[in-house]
Amino acid sequence: MSLLELRGVSKTYGNVRALWDIDLTVEEGQWIAIMGPSGSGKTTMMNIVGCMDRPSQGEVRLGGVNISQESGKNLTAIRRDKIGLIFQQFHLINYLTALENVMVAQYYHSLPDEKEALLALERVGLKERAKHLPSQLSGGEQQRVCIARALINYPMLILADEPTGNLDEANEKVVLGILRQLHQEGSAIIVVTHDPEVAEEAQRTVVLEHGRIARIIENDKWNKWNSVENSAANNEENGKGGAADA
């Protein structure tokens, strides 16, 4: 059973088709990067996978469970229990300390546990900064708190939206190092990025164009870089509308 399966997923907003017949499978422990220009459907795909939106057509299975037509309340519960989110803009609560920001995720999940939250911060190298407010942390440190928060409830899947988009080179390396370590420990990660260097860290890069999967690049670092051209024209010939099995 795959961790995540998208089968024929489309999303339309009025007359605009944001996603078009997407097929994608993510196995447990895989690291996928999603790239594409603005308006290619990356955010829409993240929203659907992150249980913040529902597809107009098709089926999304997370851990074998079809979540395509779940109610908002159930999607909130699935997101809370199974998904860890990392944001480009960190989105820490400004009146809570780093430690409390991690504990918030525990609070909404089950029970806050200060020791466990402190261990999560230690894991991202921020134990000494646990009592600091976000305003007292650098961008890189804030992103590491965001990562600790995403990990604290042992999610099935980590979704990272441009996790290094607001960081300098040094902090980018630190954050990528943490993601690499998480991946080595078995976490499944989907990263949306514009940065080819970040995408190179993933096992596969899914390139979106105009709401379709244009191609899938097998990362050479993992598997000698295979590039599977899967152009829209070929897909149309096959009657698949740009969909690709990842």
Partner: peptide, 9 residues
Amino acid sequence: ADERKREDA
């Protein structure tokens, strides 16, 4: 590609 398992890493 989707047959790739995490043990590949």
